[in-house]
Nucleic acid binder design. Structure first.
Lengths: 252, 252
DNA sequence: GAGTGGTCTAGACCACACC
DNA sequence: GTGTGGTCTAGACCACTCC
């Protein structure tokens, strides 16, 4: 047959495509530029659209592309460094913060949170503050902050919904923050989170769980959901050297 | 027109499927149990196999399923907490560590790493140590540790390949570690990493970049690649309270 | 060998943004 | 409207594991 099988690649097509496209992005496209649509790209590379999409999905996962339904596929800017960890420790809402409280209710904590708070029975009431974090006018994270009533005993009753979250935070800030610990794991955005992060449900997110310790016990717990496509979480600790804002590309 | 459109769901099928399957996992399956194969499951739910696979992919991304070609789909155990951050600071290879060095070469650092090291030109030679981290006999991470020659001037020449990595680490440990900072972001496993992590290329990973600061300058840089499906990274700082090993399920 | 998940195809229709 | 990406189908074949 006339087809000289030049490359008997064992590599999947979508993987090879991803590499080729990735190189093209580096050399031929500027940030924000719009790529040809999926049908054209697929035809150009001689593959089915589904296969091309596999490659695009990978590149989007790595934060190199951004896809929006009805609009198109654009070249994403390097990921933003979003500070998360303790440079100097501070309570949520304290210090230079770009969180905005958008709601607050008192309710029983979900079982997993109750466990983190050391509440075995899981029937204590906790203040549940919903917040959104923005960076450069883009939403980058949502979180739920759980503060047991017992952590802020001085709180007055009968607060208006508008005052409530700030009153809880203000009470927190009176306490002495002894320590905090965190976990980071991969998850997928729930419908509500996705909406606020301007993504589709199921989008990859980094889930950051923080426990705030005061007076030898867990005083508050936060469960934050960061957009994994646009965010690079930073955990500063040495102020000695400036953090490079550039993306650390994986390279062998 | 006999079809009574009971649920005019606007929810995608795969999303609904994921929810249903997720609930089934909680209530009807034990960890390690094998699910029916994809063709059977798809038939049972009356969807195409590709649609079912979308749901399984989501569940795998969330660490609830494990799929192995030729074997089947099993219910994954809760994610392991893997300690990463500074409880007490220590150099790589120091302290209770489950890293194993598997190779070491001297070479010019990739551009992104050179930048992190403060080497603008990018032509300095660095010791490049390749390591693998295991937890409970399972590989959980690979990393590359970059140590500029200038950071370990006392190192003797002409080391055997077996001695080399340990000699570099030993020299590092003589220095005074002043601080470290980290970034965490989502990535996909390169072919080499995937192999050592016993995953397929492209599998989701958490990329942890650490800069070690000593004497006011960046002395070493590590780029680690953690399996995102099985690992929950922990950043301990308050030894006050034990970390719960249980998985924090997302819950509204 | 039989059975599994992984890749790929060539279509179709839908939801959404923009004009 | 038109054009985009998102969902879904019903097949096919491949690579791998295990017997």
């Amino acid at each position: 047959m006339g087809t000289t099988q030049l490359e008997a690649v064992q590599e999947p097509k979508y993987w090879h495509l991803k590499t080729v496209l990735g190189e093209a992005l580096d050399s031929e496209f500027a940030v924000g530029e719009v790529l040809p649509n999926e049908r054209d790209l697929a035809a150009r590379f001689g593959v089915a659209r589904a296969t091309l999409r596999q490659a695009l999905e990978q590149l989007e996962l790595e934060g190199r592309l951004q896809r929006r339904r009805g609009v198109g596929t654009t070249v994403a800017p390097p990921r933003r460094g979003i500070h998360v960890g303790p440079a100097e420790r501070h309570w949520p809402g304290q210090g230079p913060d770009d969180w905005r409280a958008i709601g607050c209710v008192e309710a029983a904590a979900p079982a997993a949170v109750a466990r983190l708070l050391g509440d075995e029975a899981g029937d204590d009431l906790v203040h549940t503050i919903h917040r959104v974090r923005t960076s450069e006018r883009q939403p980058v994270a949502t979180d739920i902050l759980y503060v047991p009533r017992s952590s802020v005993p001085g709180l007055s009753d009968a607060l208006s919904p508008a005052e409530h979250p700030h009153a809880v935070l203000a009470e927190l800030h009176r306490l002495d923050l002894e320590g905090e610990d965190r976990t980071v794991e991969l998850g997928s955005a729930r419908a509500e989170d996705a909406k606020q992060l301007e993504r589709l449900p199921g989008a990859p997110v980094l889930i950051v769980t923080t426990r705030y310790v005061s007076a030898g016990r867990v005083t508050a717990v936060s469960a934050a959901t960061y957009r994994a496509d646009t965010c690079r979480l930073t955990f500063g600790d040495s102020g000695a050297v400036e953090i490079d804002t550039d993306q650390t590309r994986q390279a062998s």
